Simulated assay, not measured.
Amino acid sequence: MAPRRCPCGTGLPYAECCGRLHDGSATAATAEQLMRSRYSAFAVGDPAYLLATWHPATRPRSLSLDPQVRWTGLDVLATTGGGLLAAEGTVEFRAWYRHEGETGSQHEVSRFARVDGAWRYLDAG
């Protein structure tokens, strides 16, 4: 049986891609990698990872995911900054989902900033 592909769309197996970030054995090197891993956390139902990677200034107290939403695809449209040496960056994306038999998408420009050297999701513009 082939390994499960990562929901983030890289084509890599989940365990070699976002799974390493979700289980804590790796951290995101770029803002885009963090954004992809956060999308994957929505897709696999991991609210703890989402909270852990949220900027402390904007992090909600708790987060519950809607089990009726099935995330089905991710398109990264543009990135600004967010590289290996950057302190902040943005990632524009469209995330596709199915809910109650309907297909929809969420279009967002997410802002990311480093906190103690680690990328964190700040907010959506």
Rank of each mutant, 00 (worst) to 15 (best):
M1Q: 12
M1D: 10
M1L: 12
A2Y: 11
A2C: 11
A2D: 11
A2M: 14
R5L: 14
C6W: 00
C6S: 01
C6F: 01
G11M: 04
G11W: 01
L12P: 07
P13H: 11
Y14D: 00
A15H: 15
C17N: 04
C18E: 01
C18H: 00
G19M: 00
H22A: 04
A26L: 12
A26H: 12
T27V: 14
T30N: 03
E32G: 01
E32H: 02
E32K: 04
Q33D: 03
Q33L: 04
L34W: 04
M35G: 01
R36P: 06
S37K: 02
S40E: 04
S40W: 02
A41D: 00
A43M: 08
D46W: 09
P47Y: 05
A48C: 07
A48M: 08
A48Y: 00
Y49S: 07
Y49Q: 03
L50Y: 06
L50G: 03
L51G: 05
L51Q: 03
T53Y: 03
T53Q: 07
W54F: 04
H55R: 03
P56D: 03
A57Q: 14
A57N: 13
P60T: 03
R61P: 15
S62L: 12
D66F: 12
Q68H: 13
R70I: 12
V76N: 05
L77C: 09
A78N: 11
G81A: 10
G81P: 13
G82K: 09
G83V: 06
L84I: 11
L84W: 08
L84T: 11
L85I: 10
G89S: 05
T90C: 09
V91C: 08
V91K: 08
V91Q: 06
R98T: 13
H99L: 13
E102W: 15
T103K: 15
E108F: 04
E108M: 02
A113H: 13
R114C: 09
V115Y: 15
G117R: 13
A124E: 14
G125H: 11
G125I: 07
